[in-house]
Amino acid sequence: METRSMRDPWQEMRRLQREMEHMFTDFTPAWRWPLTGEYPPMNFTRGDKDIAVEALCPGADRASLEVSVVGETVTIRGERHAEPGVSDEQYHRRERPIGTFTRSLGIGDRLDPDRTQATYTHGILRMQLARVPEATPKKIPIQN
């Protein structure tokens, strides 16, 4: 039996992956990854007139929080800072993510940016988004 045929074709890939992970771990410990992708998680509820959106982002720097509304999409931005003056060596455990985050969510209704309100309490960013009123049918008089 030829030994080469017994080799797992993915073995080399896994070895390379492990090496890459090890390399990145050396330079970027796992607890320092930037907040990207699906952070922060969001919920929304449609009301008769407006839409209530909540984003779970505890410990965000209040000055960095931004909410913008374009068309049917709401976008939030913010940042979570590391503790100032604390070196990596002082940490025994780091599970809380830090870094900047951006998240856009399509609501499915045209939104009015001028009537958007947002508050940040207990680590939850709450937004009240107003729909653009539907165009009402206008009767056109027929001229003789």
């Binding site: 779970l56 982002c57 505890p58 410990g59 503790e83 604390v86 002082q90 940490y91 025994h92 455990r93 780091r94 599970e95 809380r96 993510p97 207990h122 680590g123 939850i124």
Partner: peptide, 21 residues
């Protein structure tokens, strides 16, 4: 999720608990 770090005189524990009053 928590962070725990040590200073000269204290241990500091930070825990993300959004929604808690």
């Amino acid at each position: 999720p928590v962070d725990i770090y040590e200073t000269e005189k204290t241990y500091v524990l930070l825990a993300d608990m959004p929604g808690v009053m």
